[in-house]
Design a protein around this nucleic acid. Structure first.
Lengths: 192, 192
DNA sequence: ATTCGAAATCGAGTCCTACTCATCTTAGTT
DNA sequence: AACTAAGATGAGTAGGACTCGATTTCGAAT
């Protein structure tokens, strides 16, 4: 994830302190929002980052921008984890575990996602999940080859379904047990 | 929807002006939020309703309460419609069709929600669906007796799952074909 | 090393809006 | 007609998002 570290060619490089502060703010924001909810004041984030309020707004002009940046940060890490999972765990069960992981991450940071929706920023979980498509593709292929998933299931069917569960899990605050149960039902079906 | 018109027995009846104002505020709020988005100031709602700001807060203590009342009003109308349709048919293996119907009705009135949802109102289909619990109970029992549904499936598992699909179907604008496909997958499971 | 301009930081202050509450008004009862 | 409590009023309060001119810091060029 070196996007922020990249130096724009032809232009002046981003100053070292600016890059450092940006990272600090993101880190602080994630911690503060996770602890006090996404309605926590921006001052708190600034304080925790050891930075003035104006600096936060220089890097993230609006609060939704800050929230969005935190989420994207989260997703980047999630992609890494998914890739690791793909590399280390070869069997078909990896797909199920991956879905559980996605729901779990969403649940941990549910307030951030909620606030995003409230402020009208359209980052649907489904849209966000699209970034995971390559990983899901690999996992799904492998699961299908392993014969643990129906032949006709496609990635662009699985992703919306997973997104639907995630969205509702976040909105309705499903606990770990029910998230697990929902995935069991989805994979095994409702019929006898 | 005569909930608000009911007079609590044993207690003083709600004053006529209070009931009138409540209705006016709801109507005004629906119009104002639809036009200016959910971030419209509460003053605007009060002004349109021809009422002081304090009166709005007497009836709806917080802004989310007001937003929720508006949306639930909308959802109640839709859900009642679906409920009635199912009761009129009332055949044996209607659970699947019922789910399809709920999704379909939601999709039909999608644009009504979208304006509000876009601007940040959290439309909790799940909350509204809770009112359908009695109907779902009956349908689920019937389906279980008919052996078309797994024995261990409970109503309070089915409702959140259905709500999840509905919510995402509305938000992501699933077409009829994919709504059907999603229900097929949910009922039959992802595994081979 | 020193200079210097641009970039970044700072934070008190502004604006906006959700919400409160002491006071006044009115519906409904006797 | 008098009474009373529910209800209405709206100026005031609180708190948070965002601004902006003053100030500091970086880093490139001499």
């Amino acid at each position: 994830m070196s996007r922020d570290g990249m130096v724009p060619k032809g232009e002046r490089p981003v100053r070292a302190d600016a890059r450092r502060n940006r990272a600090r703010i993101l880190e602080a924001a994630e911690a503060v929002f996770a602890e006090h909810g996404a309605s926590a004041a921006t001052d708190a984030v600034a304080a925790r980052a050891g930075v003035a309020i104006g600096t936060v707004f220089r890097h993230f002009p609006t609060k939704p921008d800050l929230l969005k940046a935190v989420v994207m940060n989260l997703l980047d890490r999630l992609i890494d984890e998914a890739d690791t999972m793909v590399r280390e765990q070869g069997d078909g069960a990896a797909l199920f575990e991956f879905c559980a992981l996605v729901m779990s991450v969403g649940a941990t940071h549910r307030t951030v996602f909620e606030r995003l929706a409230e402020t009208g920023v359209q980052v649907r979980v489904g849209d966000a999940l699209e970034r995971l498509r390559p990983s899901v593709d690999v996992l799904l292929d492998r699961a299908r080859d392993g014969g643990v998933v129906r032949e006709d299931l496609r990635t662009d069917e699985l992703i919306p379904l997973l997104a639907a569960l995630c969205q509702e899990a976040i909105a309705a605050d499903w606990d770990e047990r029910f998230r697990r149960r929902a995935l069991d039902l989805l994979f095994d079906g409702l019929r006898s």
